[in-house]
Simulated scan of single mutants.
Amino acid sequence: MDIRVQGPGPTSPFLSARDRFETEHDLSLPVHVQLRDDPDERTWAAHYDDRHVLNISRQAASSAMASELALHEFAHMARHEQDHPSHTQSTEEVLYLALAGKSVERRKLSHCYQIANHMKDIYADDITLSVGPGEKLLSFLESSLAAAVADRPETPPRPGLERLSASADPEITAVNAAFALALAERHDLVDRDHRLYDLAHAAAMDAPEIDFEGFKRRFRELGRETDVSTYRQVLVDATRSYVGGDGLAAD
């Protein structure tokens, strides 16, 4: 597995992640690590005919999570090379099938993309967690959800209705909580008394219109082996559940 770090910055997190990844997996194409100056730049992978590109800020590359972030992106690259349905299915196609004839708020439309990304992450982390322990990932999920749950408005929207989760978008916070708990349960990372359950419960209470248990079940029970048609239907169903609606997707 060929890794080329471009620009000044740490290299050891990427080499460490490569060593762990190669215990069970490999990539056919080289990986170019692009270190970016913007500290708010999210970590993400891009795919080309002759290479993969791992984009990461220098700040993230120097963090305690750097190796885990790299390993997660290597897993996405592996799924891409496998032509896995979660990484080849067009989200735009799914939205067309799921939302035809509907009027959907822009924010909810963006949330649908996030739901699709959660499903991609489930399949990527099936690889990530097959080659390394999940303690850091669990801590990351817990801290991220705790920050969202603590993000309350200074003034409740109405007396007695103070929100328990992120003030801007409690609906997607509840879905994010379902994803975090589903991933943890899928890989046996948590006991029943783990704090993640309390945080997820708080997020779910703040968005009673979201089928929290349904989303958790969808994420947790995604088939380890799936085909294009099955995966498309699961994503269509999740999209319709989030925005409202039912029915079967066209094949």
Rank of each mutant, 00 (worst) to 15 (best):
H32F: 06
R20F: 02
L109N: 11
A180S: 12
T11R: 13
A200L: 01
L29W: 06
A180T: 03
C112K: 04
G244Q: 08
M119L: 13
T91W: 11
A45D: 02
R163Q: 11
D193Q: 08
E105S: 15
N117L: 07
H47F: 15
A178H: 01
L145K: 02
R107D: 12
G134L: 09
D191C: 05
Q89W: 05
A150W: 00
L69F: 15
A124I: 10
D206Q: 05
A200E: 01
R218G: 02
S67Y: 00
S16A: 15
F14T: 04
P10F: 00
S130P: 04
R58F: 02
V94R: 01
E41S: 14
L145D: 02
A180H: 12
A177D: 02
H194E: 00
R79S: 07
D126H: 10
V53A: 08
Y96E: 15
E41V: 09
A200Q: 00
L129N: 03
H201R: 15
P133E: 14
A238N: 04
L95V: 08
N117D: 12
D251H: 13
T239H: 04
K216W: 03
S110A: 15
Y96R: 15
D191E: 12
Q114G: 10
D169V: 10
A202P: 01
D188C: 02
S12L: 09
E171K: 08
Y123H: 14
D121L: 08
T43I: 10
M205C: 12
D126S: 14
V31I: 13
E154S: 11
G247D: 10
D50L: 08
P156R: 02
E221C: 06
E22T: 12
T91L: 11
G9N: 04
E68L: 10
D49W: 06
T23R: 14
S103H: 09
A238Q: 03
A100P: 03
T230I: 10
I56M: 10
A200H: 00
A124Q: 12
R4L: 13
V94I: 15
E41I: 01
S139M: 08
H118N: 13
S229V: 14
F179H: 04
A46N: 05
E68P: 02
A45Q: 10
S62R: 11
